[in-house]
């Protein structure tokens, strides 16, 4: 996301200084709103399947904001990929269709769309992060106090550091990390989003 924003800025600068070259392609300016959707993709856990899915996104210029993969059904060798992508509604429909037609892809569910249809606010989305904070004295106490408030757990500690495990929505994790920044933040590792819809029905 950040990268594409920077790139379009440079293009803008260029167009101001010199006229673009002529071409036979007609490229319409995009005036549609950009939306963000969470997709669940059930795939055969075979060699190269992740490269195939990611290659589709890079090859066709789609965005990936978060990607989480793990085998979820061992006997059938099925993996569940959770992808958060953003684009115009038309592009998001294309992404679904392009994913669906891949040979190892069994199902694609747009969790955001399903949540809307069922009258929910949005799908359940959780992310886990490991956050390492080093410091002594007042900063250390403050970090511990805030971790309690965020219900983060200490999974490793020494006299001069804590490693917290925190689970929650992406916004909560973002907030926790930014709060820890002035308190001696050393390292962050995040899993990406795992998601499913509310209610008794499966995917």
């Amino acid at each position: 996301m950040e990268l594409s924003r920077t790139m379009s800025d440079t293009t803008d600068n260029k167009t101001r200084t010199m006229p673009p070259p002529a071409s036979a392609y007609f490229i319409a300016e995009n005036r549609e709103r950009i939306v963000r959707h969470t997709l669940s993709v059930l795939v055969d856990n075979e060699s190269g399947v992740l490269a195939r899915v990611i290659g589709l996104f890079s090859g066709r210029g789609y965005n990936i904001e978060s990607l989480t993969v793990s085998e979820t059904e061992h006997e059938r060798h099925l993996s569940r990929i959770t992808i958060i992508s953003s684009g115009t509604p038309k592009v998001l429909e294309q992404i679904k269709r392009q994913l669906e037609r891949m040979v190892p892809v069994h199902r694609v569910v747009d969790l955001t769309l399903v949540a809307e249809q069922r009258g929910h606010d949005k799908a359940l989305e959780r992310e886990l992060a490991l956050v390492k904070v080093a410091g002594e004295g007042e900063k250390r106490v403050e970090a511990m106090r805030l971790a309690d408030a965020f219900r983060a757990q200490v999974i490793d500690a020494s006299t001069d550091h804590f490693t917290f495990e925190i689970t929650g929505r992406t916004s909560k994790i973002e907030q926790f990390i930014s709060i820890m920044a002035p308190l001696g933040l050393v390292e962050v590792c995040r899993t990406g989003v795992a998601a499913m819809n509310r209610g008794s029905q499966g995917m």
Partner: peptide, 10 residues
């Protein structure tokens, strides 16, 4: 055949 506008389109 391709006017200024046409050239500017891309």
């Amino acid at each position: 055949a391709i006017d200024g506008e046409g050239k500017a389109l891309v």
